[in-house]
Computed example of a mutant assay.
Amino acid sequence: MTGPDHATRRAWAYLSRVAEPPHTELREFVEAEGPLEVARAVQSRRVPARYRAVLGATGARVDTDTSERDLETAARLGARLVTPDDDEWPGWQLWGLREGDTAARGGPPLALWVRGSRRLADEVRSAIAVVGARGATSYGEHVTGRLVGGIVDAGWTVVSGGAFGIDGTAHRAALGSGGSTVAVMACGIDLDYPASHAALFAAISREGLIVSEYAPGTTAARHRFLTRNRLVAALSSAVVVVEAGRRSGAANTAAWARKLDRPLGAVPGPVTSAMSVGCNRMIADELAVLVGDAQAVLSLAAPDGRGGPNHGAVRRTDALTGDRARVYEAIPARGTATIEELALGSAVDVDGVLSALAMLEVDGFVVHTGDGWALAGPND
């Protein structure tokens, strides 16, 4: 795949702002009709009946088109809008957000604003999320530094949320260890939130990436932090919670890890510490694996050494399940196959094959040719 032309990119930028992310119906509309057609439909207020929910979601912002300004703002920062049309789109990492109730509670992002020069798909291919309480203790910060040092030494990227406490410590430790880190934000990539982390965010954008599904200028808000947490979990091969209170954003990220079947680890803490109540409870309830050092975290993310950055890449096709996996496997390694041939080879009915192919095409696994359907390219 190549990137979209400027008109198409403007349409993506417009759609990324016109409805509060994430919006499942808008994303599905774009996947079915393409961004240019959907942008025109939204602006004219003429959408198919099945996407009527899009009208309500876009009503307040439909007449405010700041797409050109948003793209220019991003360019001045060394940032860009990454869409499913781009080679660096992390389709397989985000695949789990399509499944079960995760789709109903947000689903994959429509597009992502990315600040930094590294390729997004490469940075998160072997990544571990390290998250925790904003009110971190000295114990939590010390443990975070030790864990992250070992994670980075093994070649993994560290993902976190850019917040005070454990998040900030994880980012700093990754940078201090000579590694890469990705900050997933609950505001626009042009805003530093918290403001006192401005220097940290500048360093992250040089040595890693800052990522957000919110258009430039979007301010942080509580619901956006909770929405952001699903991306922290989805873009990681495992999630580790170092400290968490009884109710915390870190606990919410842990819940997303479980929904997405990401391995979840938690660091035990003193029973006298309010900041360790959440972690201790996750371990006691067998919701998370107890981790105390970097090796335990690495074993969690890559059991038996498989899938880690030093042991061969995870295959993109590992994310495929159900009909999508069966249809994908029915496509020949060379040449093409028709819908009827795929139905026969996969034992999936024609409607199921069409649905599976639509999703496989969106995420770059297959392409439609004049003769039928073919593999898009190497997916190992």
Results as ranks from 00 to 15, higher is better:
281 R>D: 10
104 A>T: 11
135 G>C: 12
204 I>P: 02
91 G>M: 06
131 V>S: 04
43 Q>L: 14
228 R>E: 07
302 A>W: 09
53 A>C: 05
178 G>Q: 09
361 E>M: 10
153 D>R: 14
230 R>I: 09
28 E>P: 00
290 L>T: 11
184 V>S: 02
373 W>K: 01
227 T>R: 11
145 G>I: 07
34 G>K: 04
262 R>T: 08
177 S>E: 08
187 C>W: 01
66 T>R: 14
313 A>M: 13
165 G>Q: 09
115 R>D: 00
156 W>Q: 13
284 A>P: 04
65 D>G: 06
30 V>K: 03
221 A>R: 12
126 S>L: 08
96 G>I: 02
274 A>S: 12
124 V>H: 08
159 V>C: 05
86 D>L: 04
184 V>K: 00
295 Q>N: 10
216 P>F: 08
176 G>V: 09
84 P>K: 05
269 G>V: 04
12 W>M: 05
350 V>A: 13
66 T>W: 13
273 S>K: 03
232 V>F: 04
49 A>K: 11
311 H>G: 15
53 A>I: 05
328 Y>D: 08
306 R>M: 12
359 M>I: 13
77 L>Q: 06
174 A>E: 02
122 D>T: 14
293 D>F: 03
33 E>L: 11
39 A>E: 14
84 P>S: 05
223 H>N: 09
294 A>W: 04
201 F>T: 01
190 D>P: 03
29 F>S: 00
378 P>A: 10
325 A>E: 14
259 K>F: 09
280 N>I: 07
148 V>F: 03
342 L>V: 04
317 T>H: 07
380 D>H: 15
281 R>W: 10
221 A>K: 14
337 A>M: 02
31 E>R: 10
132 G>V: 05
316 R>F: 11
254 A>E: 00
219 T>C: 10
270 P>R: 14
129 A>W: 01
